[in-house]
Amino acid sequence: MVFTPSRSLITGASAGIGTALARRLAERGSDLVLVARREDRLRDLASELQSAYAVTCEVVALDLSGDRPGATLRARVEGDVDLVVNNAGIAAQGSFIDADAADLDRVIAVDMAALVDVCHAFLPDMAARRSGTILNVSSTTAFQPVPTLAVYAAAKAFVLSFSQALWCEAITHGVQVMALAPGPTKTEFFDVIGENAAVIGSLQTADQVARTALSALDRRRPPLYVISGRRNTLAAAGARLAPKRLLLPILARSMRL
């Protein structure tokens, strides 16, 4: 089976994994709603995909750190959406003690609060139709705490836990929920946290991650979550089993390099 939603909404679509997913979904024939802060990038992407694949691309410029972004987005997007991809995410890297409180608030707002609000805004219509899919982008940092990325890693652990609980509730209404856990990925994310974070797993391209996500959704019974890359899957399994008193100092030293 090839997973082909009629219309897909992607947050954080202006770069990285969001852009890669947009390209792969357009290739499959899905119309798109592209959401991000940077409208110029969204319009360039929309023009590219409409020309290449003859799909319809709607652009919504929106800062997801604002109040009730999901409700705002639902009000601005007319019609049904078959796939919602909560991909938008940011990180604040460095010592928690020295961090700017406003930066931490923004990570919590975008990585957790916005994701929950978008799910809450779009899930009822999917449940009423008894069809639809929600893909929440987590991270392999969800499987272990990460010093200097303390809030980000905790936020991604929240996304993983929330998505699995939501899967159980949504599946009774005919709606599929899956979390995607990429490892280190060649995106703008490393401009923020530094390339040393690649120590947590094996570096992949955004397109590799997008292919992993869609391959999982192609299955007759998609998993509750999928980790992108075999080495990242092994690393996540090892992190879950390793004693945290041993693992955390190693991660802390690596992240400070």
Rank of each mutant, 00 (worst) to 15 (best):
S6K: 13
A13F: 00
I17F: 04
L21R: 13
A22N: 05
E27Y: 03
S30Q: 05
D31M: 08
D31W: 06
R37V: 00
E39H: 03
E48Y: 02
A52W: 01
Y53V: 03
A54R: 15
L62S: 11
L64G: 03
V81F: 04
V81A: 05
N86H: 06
N86I: 09
N86R: 06
N86Q: 06
A91E: 11
G94K: 08
F96M: 06
D98L: 10
R106E: 14
M112W: 07
D117Q: 01
C119T: 05
P124S: 00
R130S: 06
L135Y: 03
S138K: 04
T141V: 15
A142N: 10
P145C: 10
T148R: 13
L149D: 08
L149N: 09
A157E: 06
V159I: 14
S161N: 13
C168S: 13
E169H: 08
G174K: 09
V175I: 03
V177C: 07
A179H: 03
T185Y: 01
T185P: 02
A197P: 06
I200Q: 02
G201M: 12
L203N: 06
Q208C: 10
Q208I: 07
V209M: 09
T212F: 11
D218R: 11
R221W: 10
P223W: 05
P223M: 02
L224A: 15
G229N: 08
G229R: 12
L234H: 08
A235S: 15
L247W: 02
P249Y: 01
L251Y: 08
S254G: 13
